[in-house]
């Protein structure tokens, strides 16, 4: 089956399980079309591997439209590949040239252990969220939605923080494997809304404590996460979280 005319050399991280050692394995792929997405190129490769009775490469993906946050590859040393503002599944092969060598590795962080090949365990994010990433309101207890006017600017800012897809590219990119951008986006989303202010104190405290317990590094403000975040989550969120955290502890 022919698709297009690009021939590439892929070097892909293969690792059978968390306990075993992994290494980069070289795979040539042929006849790749520039219209394919990066993951479709992986489909082609996997199809080849299956036809040779080898184990296909395991990688996380689901929506393939940049919103679920499943896909997670470090491509040639950049989380989600060479383009900014998109996820791995939104990357297309026209961003590469015929003859290129592409190195693909999983997210690397103590807190994100490899499960298999390019798949990592991101449940640390879940645990952080369960420590305070919510407003404690039970179903059915809410007042009419328009009883609480919220300035458009605040709602928009909150939305911008809430747009985080929890992919973990920030952690993968940060030289310290810090989760500050993700956690601060969560904290900010609520801190910016009047509904969220009530629990602001406990929220930031508990979420930061869990973040530290998970073994993420700290932020030395290099700003790389903001650049590589597919959803453009701003460093302002980290500043806001620092502020909130400081204020809470000075009380």
């Amino acid at each position: 089956m022919s698709h297009g005319n690009m021939n590439l050399t892929l070097k892909i991280w293969r690792q059978n399980s968390a306990k075993e050692q992994g290494q980069l394995v070289t795979y040539p792929v042929k006849d790749i079309s520039p219209d394919m997405s990066f993951l479709e190129m992986f489909d082609v490769l996997n199809e080849q591997l299956v036809s040779k009775n080898e184990n296909p490469i395991v990688f996380d993906h689901d929506c393939r439209e940049g919103i679920c946050g499943m896909c997670s590859m470090v491509i040639n040393g950049r989380a989600h590949g060479p383009k900014t503002g998109i996820t791995t599944c939104q990357l297309h092969m026209r961003s590469f040239k015929d003859g290129d060598t592409i190195v693909v590795e999983p997210w690397r962080a103590q807190a994100f252990p490899v499960i298999k090949d390019l798949t990592v365990d991101r449940t640390a994010f879940e645990r952080i969220q369960s420590k305070g990433g919510f407003i404690s309101v039970n179903t059915g207890t809410a007042q009419d939605a328009n009883c609480l006017p919220i300035a458009k600017g605040d709602a928009d800012a909150s939305f911008n923080a809430a747009a985080c897809i929890g992919c973990g590219a920030c952690v993968a990119t940060c030289k310290n494997a810090s989760a500050m951008l993700f956690v601060s986006a969560k904290v900010s989303q609520f801190a910016l809304l009047p509904q969220g202010k009530i629990e602001a104190t406990v929220r930031v405290k508990n979420m930061v404590a869990q973040m530290d317990a998970e073994g993420f590094g700290s932020c030395t403000n290099t700003g790389a996460c903001e650049v590589e975040c597919p959803k453009g989550i701003s460093l302002e969120n980290i500043a806001r979280m620092n502020r909130e955290y400081f204020a809470v502890n000075m009380k």
Binding site: K11, W13, L24, V74, N76, G77, R78, V103, E105, R108, A109, Q110, A111, T173, K175, N176, A177, S178, G215, F216, G217, S218, T220, N221, T222, G223, A224, C225, V227, E228
Partner: peptide
């Protein structure tokens, strides 16, 4: 601690596009 947070380093890293060398070398 930050070093420990990434025990396995990347084979290829292209950090220059997203941050300055000196911010990474404090």
């Amino acid at each position: 601690q930050n070093n420990k947070a990434r025990p396995q380093k990347y084979a290829v890293q292209n950090s220059a596009v997203s941050s300055t060398w000196y911010s990474r070398s404090m």
